[in-house]
Nucleic acid binder design. Structure first.
Lengths: 202, 202
DNA sequence: CTCTCTTTTAAGAGTTACTATCAAAAGGTT
DNA sequence: AACCTTTTGATAGTAACTCTTAAAAGAGAG
């Protein structure tokens, strides 16, 4: 109950934390490798655990579900900051475009590449696809909030929610396009799609 | 191999077919009742099977997954026909609005009510939500095709896919709104949202 | 270094959705 | 009644989780 634990407090750079991070990374990388080699559904959690040299229970302590190994957005918070940094007069969708372009431009090459691979995996596996879209919906809510803040309006305003929904829809559609044409530049597609949405009144 | 089976052909009005329909209905209704009473996740397939007086294996013969008991659109084919019946000059989104309004206007009151209940269930259960959105994506592809046909253009045209995606996105957003405000008229919301999309160039 | 507290991990058993197989039951035809 | 086909149920098995519990390992205090 006290705010000064008796013993063994969590040190930011302690062995414990480092080991945890290493274990997490190991599980993730072995999982992704196995998914690549033999497919998502064909890979069992047990195999992943074995490859990463941990027990299945440990796997589930790090990732609540098998899906979570694939699903984790690291881009959201960065993109949000960039969005909010745009000049106030800009159309929200325009601001979003700039934020998105900047975010991906700054990402490291390997990171972007892995992100593409994950997207492809997520889109092609039904189980993951559902989850991916779930994330999209969350993003839609977030978008509505950001738009509302920028315009000084209620984020529940129907017009705002409609446009935010359209943004999400374009994201989903472009993901489909990217699936059909694997070499397509997803960021460019997204930018072009969003450009059209700037015609929407707000 | 011949087109005249030796024995036991499928007669449209035979006992077999009627019994199958009855079984299917029984499973579905008992499942939905149990979901209502004790929640989706809390209800096991075994319970449903027992309530419907069939074996678990039979349950899975009728519905490949537990999710499928909830998920089944009966409206799509009707709405498609209505969409294609609209005059050619109309903006695709406008045609879609008319088709949607007519489809729901013709639905029987009980049917619409049950549909609302299913939507609410689907939106609130993560597992079903994923599936619902998957359906939405399928609908997006369908929409792009219908738009393409109507405009005499390639359905893979980026503009068309973008607008179709926006339609889907609005659907998702309005579903969210309907969740927040349970008494809202989903059809009216959808119509209002789509109205805004008519501003998009095509 | 050792004792002790805390966190992390492993092991085990159990639940549930789903698959596969195969024999029994019921529908339908001759 | 004889016979084929479809439907059904029983059984066994897999894999993703969940829960509980005890061992192992990190970290501070003496």
């Amino acid at each position: 109950m006290s705010d000064t634990p008796d013993h063994a407090e969590v040190k930011p750079g302690g062995l414990r934390e480092r080991k945890k991070a290493r274990t997490r990374l190991a599980i993730r990388q072995h999982a992704l490798r196995l998914f690549r080699e033999q497919g998502y559904e064909e890979t069992t959690v047990e195999q992943i655990a074995e490859a990463a040299e941990v027990s299945p229970s440990t796997f589930f302590r790090y990732f609540p579900t098998k899906e979570d190994v694939v699903m984790q957005d690291d881009f959201d918070p960065i993109a949000i900051a960039k969005f909010e940094a745009q000049p106030a007069g800009l159309h929200p969708v325009a601001a979003l475009r700039v934020a998105m372009r900047e975010t991906f431009a700054e990402a490291e090459p390997g990171e972007l590449e892995q992100w593409h691979e994950l997207i492809k995996l997520a889109v092609s596996v039904p189980e993951l696809r559902g989850r991916l879209l779930d994330d999209f919906v969350r993003t839609g809510g977030l978008t509505a909030e950001l738009f509302g803040k920028r315009l000084g309006r209620d984020p529940d305003d129907l017009a705002i929610r409609t446009v935010a929904g359209a943004v999400v829809g374009v994201g989903i559609a472009m993901m489909g396009v990217a699936l059909d044409a694997p070499d397509a530049d997803f960021v460019a597609l997204m930018d072009a799609g969003l450009a059209r949405l700037e015609a929407l009144p707000l």
